[in-house]
Simulated assay, not measured.
Amino acid sequence: MDRLPGRRTGFVKVAQAHDEEVLHKIRQGLVYTETEASFQAPQRRPDLVFEYNHTPPAQAERRRELLVAALGSVGERTVLLPPFHAGFGSNVHIGDDFFGNVNLTFVDDVDIRIGDGVMIAPSVTLTTTGHPVHPSRRTDFGRFSEPIVIEDKVWIGSNVVVLPGVRIGYGSVIGAGSVVSRDIPPMVVAVGVPCRVVRPITDDDLTTRTAEAG
């Protein structure tokens, strides 16, 4: 018989209050530590990601099952070429008709939301998390996290890095090698380090092959 039910209940309530306090800090984009966030460990899905990455191409149905289990949500007709990498997996949400090429990395300490018809080239990193500049604030892996949103019909080129808190607008193209540190509006071509808008996408692009600036 449990002789200390009241004490046990008290411990649970204290733990829940602590967890809610840390989640509030994370949602506000404030610095939090590895120890503070350790209660989130069960949401990580490394074994499922590992199995997906090692499932033969011929086993398409099994790959689909693993991807649905590993990620927060997955749309229809989704292609994600292995290997891919995810800190959690459970915080990644992908829409319909998605294509992700090899070595796509999700640093998904908070949500990464990807719309419909998005195409992502090889070796792209989507990171919701950064670290303070001063080393004393990086003790115990101090970090901050902000969600990433990629709207419908976006195309992201090879070796792009998308940083915390960024939203990329509908239909936009991000040139290869860019570092996206701020929001990108809809229907533009943006390139560079840091990534900047170079021109709008117009009907003239219906008759051209490339997305290069004129």
Results as ranks from 00 to 15, higher is better:
D2K: 05
D2G: 14
G6F: 08
R8M: 15
G10R: 07
F11W: 11
V12I: 14
V14E: 08
V14H: 02
A15N: 07
A17G: 12
H18Q: 07
D19H: 09
E21D: 07
V22F: 03
L23T: 05
H24P: 10
K25L: 09
L30F: 10
V31K: 00
Y32R: 10
T35P: 01
A37R: 05
S38K: 12
S38P: 05
A41M: 12
Q43P: 01
R44F: 04
R45F: 01
P46W: 08
V49H: 00
V49D: 03
F50P: 01
E51Q: 09
Y52T: 13
Y52E: 05
T55I: 10
E61F: 13
R64W: 14
R64K: 14
L67C: 06
A70C: 09
S73Y: 09
V74D: 11
R77K: 11
T78Q: 09
L81Y: 02
F84Y: 03
F84G: 00
F88L: 06
G89L: 01
G89F: 01
H93Y: 15
G95L: 06
D96K: 06
F98K: 03
V102W: 13
N103L: 13
T105N: 05
F106R: 08
V110C: 13
V110A: 06
V110T: 06
D111I: 09
I112G: 00
G115Q: 01
G117P: 10
A121K: 10
S123I: 09
L126T: 01
H131G: 11
H134F: 10
P135A: 09
S136K: 12
T139F: 08
D140T: 12
D140E: 11
G142N: 08
F144E: 00
P147D: 08
P147S: 15
V149F: 03
I150S: 04
E151K: 07
V154N: 01
W155I: 06
I156Q: 01
I156Y: 00
G157L: 02
G157V: 03
S158K: 04
N159P: 06
V162E: 00
L163P: 00
P164H: 08
S172C: 12
V173G: 02
A176T: 11
A176W: 01
G177T: 04
S178T: 08
V179H: 06
V180P: 00
V180I: 09
S181C: 13
R182L: 10
D183C: 05
V189E: 02
A190P: 04
V191Y: 00
V193H: 13
V193E: 13
R196H: 15
R199E: 14
P200R: 07
P200L: 13
I201A: 11
T202D: 11
D205R: 07
T208H: 15
A211V: 14
A211M: 13
